[in-house]
Design a protein around this nucleic acid. Structure first.
Lengths: 194, 194
DNA sequence: TGTACATCAGTGAACGCGCGTTCACTGATGTAC
DNA sequence: TGTACATCAGTGAACGCGCGTTCACTGATGTAC
């Protein structure tokens, strides 16, 4: 075990930072603590990141990648032959995946959302756009309701996740929350339906 | 000027903490800084608050009071004789007031939202409920769409405010943002309309 | 193939800082007789 | 009305802590000849 030339110090630092962010949030991502966990001197990280903020941006990206993965995992479970119904289910599972991840990883999700530029959210947004386009093609949603639908969907699930996650509705039981989410998603669907 | 018996040290500490929270957020609300600003020794605050968290809760309440005031101020500007249209405008101005405050005071708003219990949000929620009930009475919204409308409205504006405030859409211009908000509120209205 | 040497990736120690909170205290206030 | 005394609301000093970052350095690696 050579103390020098760690192999992938940069990668290990990010991994440790993600775990710290997952449990303690952005404030918990502390340079000296990372160094301790990885077993390296406190300043070694500065070989790989210009400063703390640089590292935090990296953590943010990792979080968005997890968000995207959670959404895809949800979509992959859909068993449905009918195209119209399939397109509807895709939309819904995207919403559930988004909220599910945001609630499961509240702190890490916040790190991502507060540092990400719109550009870094390209992938999740593209998925939403694709799902909405598919819904339009199958005739599930109305052409006149299509413009601006991304924002309406996004704001609804984002708001829901934060109200029930770190916001004033955080004391609700998980059961009630899940019921409320289903009702909200029903509503969103109905507002787009043709 | 007597150094003892400040008169209203508790009140002044809260006021200073609110201003600090307004500009720097929760992390910027620092006991020693407050003492400095108010001109008192660092431990004097402990006569009035059991610890920092106790003070932060007070700041949170103050923020929610401001939110409520912002919503009321907006509603008070409505000039409209027709009851149905009036009820519609109330709903809309509540939404605009909510988003307007959340965007104008992003950090303070966050302090409030992250510490408030549902109970402390009674007033803003009651306003929303009252506006929705009024819309129902005037026939602006459909009775079948009434149940759960609070959450749909709240999630939409809350999500919007955070996406455009500290979230990934924070780089949008104010003009674009205001346009997007109007379109979102149109959508919400249409989803409730009878 | 062997080796000199540039470069890379770490170390060790320190700087300067500010924090929340507690302890033992003292000056000011108000109240009972 | 005057005064003893309990209580309240501050002070001053310190504890113990951890942080981000920089400086000058050294051990390990890889490459050109």
């Amino acid at each position: 075990v050579s103390p020098y030339h760690h192999g992938d110090l940069r990668g290990e630092l990010i991994r440790a930072a993600v775990e710290l962010g997952r449990t303690k949030g952005a404030e918990g991502i502390v340079m000296r603590e990372l160094a301790r966990q990885v077993g390296v001197s406190p300043n070694a990280a500065y070989r790989h990141f210009s400063d703390r903020d640089d590292l935090l941006r990296e953590v943010g990206s990792a979080s968005l990648a997890e968000l995207s993965a959670a959404m895809h995992a949800r979509m992959a479970t859909i068993q449905e032959a009918d195209p119209k119904e399939f397109s509807r289910r895709c939309l819904r599972e995207i919403g559930k995946g988004y909220v599910g991840y945001a609630l499961a990883e509240q702190r890490l999700f916040a790190v991502g959302m507060e540092r990400a530029s719109l550009h870094e959210l390209n992938e999740p947004i593209r998925d939403l756009t694709a799902a909405l386009d598919a819904c339009l093609e199958t005739g599930f949603i109305d052409a006149t309701k299509r413009p601006g639908a991304e924002l309406a969907c996004w704001a609804a699930v984002h708001g829901f996740a934060l109200l029930y996650g770190t916001g004033p509705l955080r004391m609700m039981t998980a059961e009630q929350r899940d019921i409320d989410l289903d009702l909200l998603l029903d509503r969103v669907e109905n507002s787009l339906r043709s």
